[in-house]
């Protein structure tokens, strides 16, 4: 009796162990499904191949020709564009707060007027220094603090230097918002401006936006894939933005389409990056507001108040 009881306990222990093992296996299975491995349905569908043959394939492998599925979009969005290293140069001497960059960005990414992937800030360092306007997108750091704190691998750095966020993975913990020293990220507190319909979520556009997740500037990764300049850069009427590939050592102006050498532009105009002391290595460079085309004018004010100095 005692022996039997003893054996039973041991068997129970083994059973428990087996159940644990099976559970872990099921867990792995579940995750692999999320990762995109679809189970075969066993049902066959007839399809016509390009050379006119009728073939049968499992319905789980069917996808519409030419249409990118969400998984395709996710996969290419994670990788980045081979051989590129995107960079932006913002010429502060040209900015006059036209805010066309913000409008173009908000319309492309379906953002509400109060949500900014790029924001034009009025800056003045001290009482006697000259105020200026400063467009501030995500700096796409080469040593990003935000991606390191993400607990679910939702925000990531690509090989072409862009930092993206996957709203399908984001759990809305906002660690990345806290980690970013440039306040480049926004949180979708309410339902997005344009509701999600049957559109595929594009990680390179962050559209459709999703409530309860973080969104940020994407360097218009979808535009770059088509070899077009970012929305903000091409919308600017004043020639503020230069954009290009650092590997090619060239940047092109979004307004005038003039192409110059990146290294020379930075060298000749004393280009700088924001908060370099943090070691984040931004991909966005600024040219100081020297030899300005326009006087500073913020709703009639030509200087900022004392409490607005930063």
């Amino acid at each position: 009796m005692e022996d039997k009881k003893n054996k039973k306990t041991r068997r129970d222990f083994l059973k428990a162990g087996l159940a644990f093992g099976a559970g872990s296996l099921a867990g792995v299975g579940l995750f692999s499904t999320i990762d995109g491995v679809k189970a075969e349905t066993g049902k066959l569908a007839k399809v016509l191949t390009a050379d006119g043959k009728i073939m049968e394939v499992d319905t789980s492998h069917l996808k519409e020709f030419g249409k990118k599925t969400e998984q395709d979009l996710q996969k290419r969005g994670r990788k980045g564009i081979a051989g590129r290293k995107w960079t932006m140069v913002i010429d502060l001497s040209k900015c006059r707060n036209a805010r066309m960059c913000m409008a173009a960005c908000q319309s492309a990414h379906e953002l509400k007027p109060e949500q900014h992937h790029i924001n034009v800030l009025a800056m003045q360092d001290a009482e006697k220094t000259a105020p200026f306007f400063m467009p501030k997108p995500c700096q796409h750091c080469d040593n990003p603090p935000c991606t390191k704190v993400c607990p679910v691998d939702a925000t990531f750095k690509r090989s072409d230097g862009i930092v993206l966020i996957d709203n399908e993975r984001c759990i809305g913990c906002r660690f990345c918002i806290a980690a970013c020293p440039y306040s480049a990220r926004i949180f979708n507190w309410s339902e997005p401006k344009v509701a999600a319909d049957d559109r595929e979520y594009d990680v390179e556009l962050n559209v459709p936006q999703k409530r309860g997740t973080v969104s940020k500037c994407l360097f218009s990764a979808d535009q770059l894939r088509d070899e077009k300049m970012p929305y903000c850069a091409s919308a600017c009427p004043n020639g503020v933005y230069w954009f290009g590939d650092m590997n090619e050592d060239a940047v092109t102006n979004g307004t005038t389409k003039e192409t110059v050498r990146f290294s020379e532009l930075i060298k000749n105009n004393a280009g700088y990056t924001l908060l370099p002391e943090l070691g984040t290595k931004p991909s966005v460079y600024y040219l100081p507001a020297k030899d300005r085309l326009f006087e500073f004018n913020l709703n009639g004010k030509t200087t900022l108040d004392n409490n607005e100095h930063v």
Binding site: K85, C150, D153, T155, F156, K157, N247
Partner: peptide, 16 residues
């Protein structure tokens, strides 16, 4: 030839 420095290929403490 351009030198492409793939930041994601190197060992790093980023997310993944």
């Amino acid at each position: 030839p351009s030198k492409h420095h793939d930041l994601t290929a190197q060992a790093s403490i980023w997310g993944t």
